[in-house]
Amino acid sequence: MNILVCVSRVPDTATKVKVADDGKSIATQNVKFILNPYDEFAVEEGLRLREQHGGSVTVLTVGGQESTDILRTALAMGADKAALIQLVNPDSYQVAVNIAQYARNHSFDLILFGRQSIDFDSFQVPPMVAQLLDLPCLTIVSQWSVTNGTVKAERDIEGGKEEFETALPLVASVQKGINEPRYPKLPDIIKAKSKPIETIEPVAVEPQLEILSMEIPQTERRHVILGDSDEDLEKLIQLLREEAKVI
């Protein structure tokens, strides 16, 4: 089974976000960048399927030169090949078009994604890639079986669960619960440093999204902090009913 896993490079979740001087992106000084946490599940799932069915796992990212670090993380986990489509700060549409083009030039049975990239939380690239390639697509899969080209998958939706059946070739995005990603071992991390990474010229495509400005939200909270006496609890109830009017 030939598997493509698409990964993105994102600020660590604990990052304190500051707006850069341009007023429309984040200041990246002192920010640690990581492999998108959901993409770890995708890489792990690719590796497990390869272990069961044979074949190979290619990891791909669309980004600047610095994105090689997340490809190395995936190589250390056990991916066979890595490719970087070099395009600085692409928007999601440019990412999708480039991934689709790469997939057309190769032949994959399965294209795996994380359910969302935790920078812009768009959930957008996987369905776009599926549509561009005219392939079936399952998103936010939390459990599945892949046997003889048939896929049975489960996912949570608002207020319930759905089960689907479909067939390879397939585009799928995965969610926590599908597996426990392995930690790369030190020797593998060292070995990954010298593995080749293919660099690919991007397809020329205009971005769709133009960011005009970025700001840190100033949510006005009331900050009324009370104690735990009976009077305080009664006060809280009164505030919720009369001031906030939510109960």
Binding site: T15, K16, I26, I118, L209, I211, L212, I216, P217
Partner: peptide, 19 residues
């Protein structure tokens, strides 16, 4: 012009779609 939370709500962008 669309406002959308990014970085898990730690920032909000204002953006346009050029299409």
């Amino acid at each position: 012009i669309f406002r959308k939370p990014v970085y898990a709500g730690k920032a909000i962008i204002a953006a346009q779609l050029k299409t």
